[in-house]
Design a protein around this nucleic acid. Structure first.
Lengths: 188, 188
DNA sequence: ACTTTCTTTTGACAATTGTCAAAAAAGGAA
DNA sequence: TTCCTTTTTTGACAATTGTCAAAAGAAAGT
């Protein structure tokens, strides 16, 4: 739980009482490789903090292909965002790529904590904003950069991804075919 | 200001006192077509609500080309998000595409209001979340749909954009060249 | 070591999209 | 209207990326 505390503190330090109620509300979840945290069609009721391991979010498109649109690593917050926020079933699957340790809190509990501790709601607002900025950067790359540029950007910002994730999933994440990524990689 | 009140209420109804301090804190801004709300290199200190008119956010890429990455219409919240949140200069320009009426609030004032009215911070958290979901949808379209599919999706969700915005800017927004968009359009 | 399975690479070819240049069309100003 | 400017369309061609199929390589299990 230290990792979470440290992570939170980088976004917005919270009061000790707020941290106490939060840490009491968290449930530890251990999941083995290849299991699923979230399945399409269900409402995702929990927000998670990933302490150890790695995950990916993907969905199945019309052609029956898996489309990976994010990876989660240590110290990332994880949820099926659309479903968690809208309280509706989502199309997203969250798969465990390495044995993982997470800390979870339910939507209801989190919102109760927001009522009690303004602090916590501020923390979440700030975290949301930072994640929004990251998403914006990804969108800009997707909109105006070539496959090669997107790959090189990934190399620069998140080289660890390339060590830990199969090529096909990275290609999908970059919005290109596995073959194209393989060719780009051989030409660098 | 009614438009803002109605818009807010759809996200999260706030208390009357909260609305009162908020509406007192807002400054009306009128801008003519082709003027700029934000210029690259500056820190964007304000969050705006667009009551009337339309705007676009764009930046100049390495090749010196304008890259449009969003449009704002009536009842949208507008800011140079990265700059507003991080308090750093951004690369974004926000240009007025039609004579516009906006209501603005500064970063400092907004944060003071957050301290006084938990309600307002919740409202902003919720709005942020909804905007996050929209961005996620755009990213998914950009990642896995063809130019034609993205255009047709835009036709379905925001046909008004096509009436009000020059083709070149729409093409840039969709991440394709103007010529390609023109050809797609002639084939539908 | 030997299968078996999964992942990555390679080749051949097709489809999509971009670029450059010019023409056509539309919109504004005098 | 006429002129001028901006926007949109079209053509020809090139570059990028995708698809399908097969081979090569790596990892996991027995």
């Amino acid at each position: 739980m230290n990792a979470l505390f440290n992570c939170i503190s980088q976004y917005h330090p919270i009061s000790i009482p707020a941290w106490e109620v939060l840490s009491e509300a968290l449930t530890q979840v251990e999941l083995p490789k290849n299991s699923f945290l979230v399945r399409e069609g269900m409402v995702c009721n929990n927000l998670y903090f990933l302490e150890r391991g790695c995950l990916r979010g993907y969905y199945n498109n019309q052609d029956g292909k898996e489309v990976t649109y994010w990876f989660g690593f240590e110290n990332n917050f994880i949820t099926s965002f659309y479903s968690f926020i809208s309280r509706k079933p989502g199309i997203e699957n969250i798969q465990v790529l390495e044995d993982s340790t997470l800390w979870g809190i339910s939507f209801e509990t989190l919102n109760q904590l927001f009522d009690q501790h303004h602090d916590l709601e501020r923390l979440v607002r700030i975290i949301n904003e930072q994640y929004y900025i990251r998403l914006e950067e990804r969108l800009m790359a997707m909109q105006f950069k070539t496959a090669r540029e997107r790959y090189e950007q990934l190399l620069g910002t998140s080289p660890h991804i390339l060590q830990r994730i199969p090529l096909g999933q990275i290609a999908s994440y970059l919005g290109i075919s596995q073959e194209t990524l393989s060719r780009i990689r051989s030409q660098v």
